[in-house]
Amino acid sequence: MNIPAEYLLILSAVLFFIGVFGFFTRRNLVSLLISTEMMLNAVDINFAVFNAYCHPGHLEGYIFSLFGIGVAAAETAVAIAIIINVYRNFHSIHIKRLKNLKY
């Protein structure tokens, strides 16, 4: 417990907003997936930190982190499957090619 909680929270906030930034600037579907994964991981860090520093004694935050990891894995599996399907249809996973549906 030598690291102050603020540092860890700043780490998770930075990770989260790198994910947000990546989601809006990257142009490759897998990069987008990685960005959202970073956001979900930042959330997991947040829960673990809050549990360890602010509310020690029970395990709700850790359990939430565990479920978060599991659900993120399931989401990634589905997203990868859909991205592979996009690749089969469009022969590319660049966002520029996904222009059948637009305003």
Binding site: F23, L29, L32, L33, T36, E75, V78, A79, I82, I83, N85, V86, R88, N89, F90, L98, N100, L101
Partner: peptide
Amino acid sequence: HNSAEAGVKYIL
């Protein structure tokens, strides 16, 4: 094609 594109937009 449209269905795949819609799917990826939805999941992300």
